Simulated assay, not measured.
Amino acid sequence: MNVVFCSQCPAVWSFMLTAFLGLWSQQVSAVSVVPIPKIAAVGENVLLSVDGVSGDIEGFNWYKGESINTNQMLRYNPFRTPPETVFSPYEGRVRGFPNGSMEISGVNIKDNGSYTVQIQTNIQDVVATVTITVYEKLSKPSVTANLTHPVEQRDSLALTCGTSIAAQTVLWFKDSQRLTSDDRMSLSQENRTLTISNVSTTDSGNYQCEVMNPVSHSTSDPYKLIVYSLPVEQHDNMHDNTWQTAVGVTIGAVLGAALLTITAVLYKKGCNCQRKGNDAGGNIYEVPDVSGVPPHQYSNIIPQRQEGIYINTLNPKAPDSTYTRFSYGAVPMITEIVFHTA
């Protein structure tokens, strides 16, 4: 028996193995999964469409995530009735198709992420992964300001676009013209706040913000901005100054007249002097004689009688008085004394 050694056999086997692996790689890489639509809105149905499978499909499995054997969603066996088994919590939301595809109905934000399919055919076992992205549909935004009456060259104004966090892009407009940052206008990191430094009357106008994401866009109602050149109190009340001044003068005059009348009445009642008469020199008033006032009206003087004559002396036995002044009874008030010489 002769043994023949082939010096080129290793090279031939290497070429055949490379060709086989290349063909197998082409078969595996030909399998693709595409989400339809590629970017979904909350509430839509998404089809994870499988294409390029070689051979007859004997079964497949779908998993949530980037690997198999964990978090299984669906098992499909075409030889069973019914062919599919859906696992919790996906019952009623997913279904399989004979070509290996799977549909998810009513997607939500939690459905964002990767999905992996494992397909068994009569000639191969393939695995492919796909990622889906779900966005909220944006509601109508609104514009609010930190100041309601900004004053020129005094205030800085901040306009905020109130919108969902799902907004990826925020644009600002004034009188339908797109706004960008400049020396006085600046935008926050996500463009949600527009700040105007040292506002001017030229900044007055209608401001709007527009929000967008891959599945929707919406524009706010116009926010009418008025920048005042006067302090807001003066601007709001300047048309009322005339009648307010007139009312003030009238009230002041009435109160003044009433005060003068009250003062005159009190003065007349408080004066107990009697008018004596007139002469060429002026008025002469008679001063009442208070010498006959009984001594007992003075609280800190003790009347004493010596030799039939009343005299008033301080009580030598009385303690130091706590009074700071003498306390008198009702004594007629002397308003004026006028002396005249012949």
Rank of each mutant, 00 (worst) to 15 (best):
R325M: 06
I334L: 15
V331Y: 00
I334Y: 01
E336A: 13
P319T: 14
M333F: 12
Y323C: 07
P316Y: 06
N312G: 14
T322E: 13
Q306S: 06
T335S: 11
V331L: 14
E336R: 12
M333Y: 08
M333W: 07
F339V: 11
E336I: 12
N312H: 06
N312R: 06
F326T: 02
F339Q: 08
P319H: 09
L314Q: 09
P319K: 15
S327L: 13
V331H: 03
E307Y: 06
T313V: 13
T324Q: 15
P316D: 02
Y323R: 13
H340W: 08
N315A: 11
A330N: 13
T313D: 04
R325H: 09
G308E: 11
Y328M: 03
P332T: 05
E336P: 00
H340A: 06
Y310I: 08
S327E: 10
F326R: 02
K317C: 04
P319N: 13
K317H: 13
I311R: 13
A330S: 15
K317Q: 11
M333A: 08
G329P: 01
L314Y: 15
F326M: 07
Y323G: 07
V331A: 05
Q306H: 00
K317L: 14
H340I: 10
T313R: 10
I309M: 12
I309C: 02
I337Y: 05
Q306L: 08
Y310G: 02
F339M: 05
I334W: 02
G308C: 12
K317D: 12
D320K: 11
T335W: 03
A330P: 03
Y328Q: 00
E307H: 09
K317T: 10
E307F: 10
V331N: 05
Y310L: 10
P332E: 05
E307K: 07
N312F: 05
N312C: 11
I311D: 04
I334P: 01
E307C: 07
Q306F: 01
T335N: 13
S321M: 00
N315W: 06
K317G: 08
T324P: 02
P316N: 07
H340S: 14
T313F: 06
Y310C: 01
R325T: 00
I337L: 14
T313Q: 14
H340V: 07
M333L: 12
T324K: 14
T335A: 10
L314E: 15
I309E: 08
N312V: 04
I337T: 02
Y323S: 15
N315V: 08
T335R: 11
G308R: 08
V338C: 00
Y328N: 01
E307A: 14
I337F: 07
I334K: 04
G308M: 09
S327V: 12
T335D: 04
M333H: 13
A318Y: 02
I309N: 06
G308Q: 11
Y310M: 05
D320C: 03
T313Y: 03
T324A: 15
H340G: 06
Y323Q: 15
P316C: 04
L314G: 11
A318R: 07
E336K: 14
D320H: 04
Y310S: 03
Y328I: 02
P316Q: 07
T322D: 12
G329D: 07
M333G: 03
V338R: 02
I337K: 09
G308W: 09
Q306A: 05
Y310F: 02
E307N: 10
N315S: 13
P332D: 05
V331T: 10
V338N: 08
G329M: 02
N312T: 07
A330L: 11
T324C: 10
